[in-house]
Design a protein around this nucleic acid. Structure first.
Length: 156
DNA sequence: GCCAACGTTGGC
DNA sequence: GCCAACGTTGGC
């Protein structure tokens, strides 16, 4: 089983939106590295941390999810009215994929990026490295569990 | 709103 | 295949 972080700008789609929806198609990925991770490594049952990006003081990890459907063609690439249509994608051989996620838990508070950066256990994570622009990142099981622990303990 | 980082595009 | 221009991401 693999562990992941999925980023989303809360102004676009937030943990509260997912709480309302329960299960959601994670669409709009338009990056080849991320697509390949979805295709090759992501499996039903994988655990995922939900990260709010570009959220000011609210930037950080806000909950956990799980993968409930493995990679399949992202329908929004063929929808001219969607956020990210891709006219060059061939319906016979779709370029972009998505997965379905289910909310497991909204955390009682946000584990902020500041807190994550200040913990040496997370120093090796891609998330805290400068210039990382991937919307989906792998994380180790140990790091995942430590984040869960910190956020439930209330203080770190 | 600024700007650094980095992926993508397209001319050659 | 190189690389400059451009667009996007995301922290601050």
């Amino acid at each position: 089983m693999n562990h992941w972080i999925f980023k989303s700008e809360p102004s676009c789609y937030s943990i509260d939106d997912l709480q309302r929806d329960g299960i959601e198609m994670w669409d709009g990925v338009r990056n080849y590295q991320v697509r390949n991770m979805m295709r090759d490594l992501m499996r039903v049952g994988d655990r995922v941390l939900f990260y709010h990006s570009n959220a000011g003081v609210g930037t950080g990890v806000v909950g956990q999810m799980e993968i409930v459907r493995e990679a399949y063609p992202d329908p929004t690439q063929f929808d001219p009215n969607s956020e990210h249509p891709d006219p060059k994608s061939d319906p016979e051989n779709p370029r972009w994929l998505c997965v379905d996620v289910r909310l497991v838990e909204k955390f009682p508070r946000t584990l902020t990026l500041q807190q994550i950066k200040s913990d040496p256990a997370f120093a090796s994570m891609q998330l805290v490295k400068k210039g990382n622009r991937l919307s989906i990142l792998p994380i180790t099981k140990a790091q995942y569990q430590r984040m869960k622990k910190l956020v439930h303990r209330g203080r770190s």
